[in-house]
């Protein structure tokens, strides 16, 4: 009944879920700064949610330490479709300087295909907003594909 409206609302209210897999918190502060008054992601409908069940876009930071590996897999599986995985910073993309360490279990795309990766260590809030804009387009395609 509201197909068109539901399609449009996917662009207008994507909800974020922040998943920290052992990051140095540089990218985490940048994510939170995107919601502060200066950059205000909420004006585009972004909202940080507490549970993966509510999320559309999953922001992954950190080089997936061995402790957080199966927790990452379990939590990512619990996000309902259509979902978009965004890697913030270089660590999830390529385990950055921690490459080859005994307790790092490798880049994120070993476990889940990364839709948008925002490079930068840490990336600038504007870059994150760009990435999120790209994520919204992918979300809309996934939603259309899902129907």
């Amino acid at each position: 009944m509201f197909k068109k409206l539901i399609e449009k609302s996917f662009e207008k209210s994507p909800w974020l879920f922040h998943l920290n897999t052992g990051s140095c918190n540089g990218c985490d502060i940048e994510i939170v700064s995107v919601i502060t008054p200066r950059y205000d992601a909420e004006r585009m409908g972004f909202k940080l949610t507490g549970s993966p069940r509510h999320a559309d876009i999953v922001l992954v930071t950190g080089p997936i330490t061995s402790q957080s590996r199966d927790r990452l897999i379990r939590t990512l599986a619990q996000v309902p479709d259509p979902k978009v995985v965004v890697s913030i910073g270089s660590c999830p993309r390529s385990t950055n300087v921690f490459n080859g360490s005994y307790s790092v279990e490798g880049p994120l795309d070993k476990y889940v295909p990364i839709d948008v990766s925002i490079a930068g260590c840490p990336p600038k809030p504007e870059a994150i907003i760009d990435g999120l804009a790209k994520a919204i387009e992918i979300l809309r395609e996934k939603r259309r594909a899902m129907k």
């Binding site: 009944m1 197909k3 549970s51 993966p52 069940r53 957080s68 199966d70 927790r71 990452l72 897999i73 379990r74 939590t75 599986a77 619990q78 899902m146």
Partner: peptide, 22 residues
């Protein structure tokens, strides 16, 4: 036209586990 309610399958898929921070 809500999409189908996806019910737990028998296979041990973490998707249907309860979210307990992983």
């Amino acid at each position: 036209g809500f999409n189908t309610v996806s019910l737990p399958t028998e296979v041990d898929d973490p998707k249907y586990d309860v979210f307990f921070s992983g």
